[in-house]
């Protein structure tokens, strides 16, 4: 019997693996909980980078390697969306938007992590201002390119809200919470305008609040995508058993 959801569970797991990896490598080793404040002067900043050079390098090398999993996870989400789209007349616009959004979001991980890796590459011989500029560049892209992820999650949300199952594949609260999260990214608009306070890259609003809810969203969609693919496989199995 052919299984249209082959590889799906594996891909769904990659999202969860990347989530855990991101906490350890981008977050803890990468010194990003919270990141260095933009209020530090160049010398203070360079001293911090020099002190944590080794950890940041390991963190960013691994983060670069695992970031492709945002895309592979996006393909798992795409599988679930295709199933819903098929039941609703087979218009694949939303799943297409979602998968491109997932691919682009991978780049939003990869380019900034490369910048931070470059900062940690030879900070001893580099000018502090140069280090700071490259580090800032990473954060500008990481925070302000949110629209790519917003597109991904909104397309997903609009699609899966049309799921006609008694118990939907993604519960309404997960969908609405996630759509709220990606809409609230608009607060990052103010990040490049300030050097300290709640809206800075390490501030209460634009770091702790925004990244807090972003990771929560990741957890929720991660768990329910895994469950959804399992359910779709079982539905498929049941449909074939009755035939």
């Amino acid at each position: 019997m052919k299984n249209p959801y082959r590889y799906g569970r594996f891909l769904a797991w990659t999202g969860i693996v990347m989530l855990l990896g991101t906490i350890v490598f981008w977050g803890v080793l990468g010194q990003n909980i919270p990141p260095y404040s933009p209020a530090l002067n160049a010398d203070e900043f360079a001293a911090q980078i020099r002190q944590h050079q080794g950890e940041i390098r390991i963190g960013m090398i691994v983060q670069l390697a695992i970031s492709v999993m945002w895309y592979t996870w996006g393909v798992a989400i795409w599988m679930v969306m295709r199933a819903i789209e098929n039941e609703n007349g087979d218009n694949d616009v939303l799943s297409t938007l979602q998968i491109w959004g997932a691919g682009f979001t991978t780049i939003v991980f990869i380019v900034p992590c490369s910048a931070w890796l470059a900062v940690a590459y030879r900070p001893d011989v580099m000018e502090p201002q140069t280090l700071q500029m490259v580090y800032d560049f990473g954060w500008m892209m990481f925070d302000c390119a949110y629209a790519l992820t917003t597109m991904q999650i909104l397309a997903w949300g609009v699609c899966v809200l049309q799921d006609k199952r008694e118990t939907p594949l993604y519960p309404g609260w997960v969908v609405w919470f996630s759509m709220f999260v990606v809409v609230s990214f608009i607060l990052e608009t103010f990040m490049p305008l300030v050097y300290d306070g709640p809206f800075s890259r390490s501030g209460v609003v634009n770091y702790f609040f925004e990244f807090g809810i972003f990771f929560l969203m990741w957890v929720f969609i991660g768990i329910y995508t895994l469950k959804a693919i399992g359910r779709l496989q079982q539905e498929h199995l049941a449909a074939h058993a009755s035939n």
Partner: peptide, 13 residues
């Protein structure tokens, strides 16, 4: 009935 889900968005916002 899925309309009440907008309430979740409102509460979050």
């Amino acid at each position: 009935e899925r309309a009440p889900a907008i309430w979740i968005f409102i509460a979050m916002d």
